[in-house]
Design a protein around this nucleic acid. Structure first.
Lengths: 235, 235
DNA sequence: TCGCGATATTCAGAAAATCTTAAGATTTTT
DNA sequence: AAAAATCTTAAGATTTTCTGAATATCGCGA
């Protein structure tokens, strides 16, 4: 485990997106280099020691594809492409060809972080002797969450979770032993700092989770309610 | 553990709020820089070594968002935004985007402190080699309060406390050895928003606490009554 | 010791947070 | 385009917590 936080470049002309990504990455303690256009990004690439780049495909000046190519030619770090879901499939296929991974907007924070980590891990593997770090997998007390496959097993029995349910459980588990405030949960799962939807939504999903896990709210074995604060899963 | 108390900036044009926050922070032994407008705050940012900033979003001159941006550009310390709950969701989302955390008014002092500490902890983690400091945990003479899990144990036995009870006990414990005046307790637990409460309310909660702790008012082992002043917990 | 104000106790109604259910909206798959 | 799966919202039920009033008790000073 390196003591230096990874340097990550994010380029997107939609400032909101870029800003959001910045927040998520900084939350994970990465150093973020953020730009709203391709030109500035290119300058940064030449002058900073970067570990990973997240590029929007559609940029007004130099598009993400070109940037990716330049990174491939002169440097050697992973590239993740951001694409709007609406953009034509075949176009995307071409544009993301050189990239190591791609993510379609809108995306969930958790997914972005997971992919970033995956790329950094993959890349680091050959540049250090550190043991492979499985932070895309959570396992304790009969519960196993696999972020790669999005699968969840409870005592060797597979739980069919919906994406939202998986996200919630993931956040709870990665904070196991600690209360996660409803707002915090919201931010981590929906990427929204604010309650654009009623926080009842969280409760309903919690309910479904409990149901699938064979829990009941009275004396839950897994997801515990901490009154006035949020939810908690024991370590 | 650093010997120097953290320097915290608080900016709010509502003087009452700013003053209150100042009191809370000073109680926790932080150095507070307080301003009622954005201009003075900006000057402070340039001339002081700050560790954290608490900014009201809506300020008459330079708004909190701009201040936050400037901090992000030239400096590198956490920012917590204060927002009124009524302010429009989409406006807020944009305005707090660059911040590390946000708190909606009215807020409970304890929550404010908790978040401040969380940010300082997160930030310090990567800027020093000190072992993780558990200041979200109070422990002495058989009593353990854990802010992360919101749990309280007395001689290894778990006490199920309600949110308000937990707050009260937390305040008493973090001022252990010192008498906490009833009004002080009031302010620390409820903030000044709920100034209409009869001070009997505090007594009732104290009663419940004592009950759960196996104390009685006659010869209390834990929460002692100091006549004409308030309550005290021994160190 | 008595009186008075401060603190305790009790309890019931009010308020707040959570749970549950189900229906409609949205998204994804077929 | 229909069907299926998933998500969100709404409303009412339930549970937990908070508060204020009434009454009892205590502690200090006269």
């Amino acid at each position: 485990m390196t003591l230096l936080a990874a340097n990550i470049l994010i380029v997107d002309d939609e400032q909101t997106i870029a800003d959001l990504v910045e927040v998520y990455l900084e939350n994970e303690n990465y150093n973020v280099f953020k730009f709203y256009n391709g030109k500035d990004a290119l300058y940064c690439i030449e002058n900073e020691r970067l570990d990973l780049a997240i590029l929007d495909v559609m940029l007004p000046d130099v598009d993400g594809f070109s940037i990716c190519q330049q990174i491939r030619e002169k440097h050697n770090f992973p590239v993740i492409m951001l694409t709007a879901k609406e953009e034509e499939i075949d176009k995307i296929t071409g544009l993301t060809l050189g990239a190591d991974d791609y993510i379609t907007k809108p995306f969930r924070p958790l997914e972005l972080i997971a992919r970033v980590k995956a790329q950094l891990r993959r890349f680091t593997k050959y540049n250090s002797s550190e043991p492979k770090q499985e932070d895309h997998l959570i396992a304790f007390s009969g519960l196993v969450l696999n972020m790669d496959t999005h699968e969840c097993t409870l005592n060797e029995k597979k739980l069919p979770l919906t994406p939202t349910e998986f996200s919630i459980l993931w956040v709870l588990c990665s904070n196991s032993g600690r209360v996660v405030r409803s707002e915090e949960l919201f931010q981590e799962v929906w990427g929204d700092k604010y309650f654009t939807n009623s926080n009842n939504t969280v409760m309903v999903h919690i309910r479904h989770l409990r149901e699938k896990m064979g829990d009941n709210a009275e004396h839950p074995k897994y997801i515990k309610t901490v009154w006035g604060v949020g939810y908690k899963i024991e370590k």
